[in-house]
Amino acid sequence: MNIFRLLRRRHTAQVAHDRLRILLAHERSRTANTDLVAILRSEVLAAVAKYIPVAIDQVDVNMDRSETLSTLQIDIHIPV
């Protein structure tokens, strides 16, 4: 029983450790923090808006960060 408890505890601690490593790596580096996302988001939108009228609620922005790869997915619904 106790051994299982110990194993289980180490298990969630490991998950916490991994989550933190990913999160802090992003938050510590100036270039990869949410400011970059904010900059990209607004500059991409501005670039598109030069040619096509888009409303901000017609834009889906999704992000997922992992250790080696972060994705920023911007879907712009262009009016027909």
Binding site: L23, V37, V61, M63, D64
Partner: peptide, 12 residues
């Protein structure tokens, strides 16, 4: 966001 496990998905 951390307690709910959504920290990697925060955009706005």
């Amino acid at each position: 966001d951390l307690v709910m496990g959504a920290e990697r998905r925060v955009v706005f």
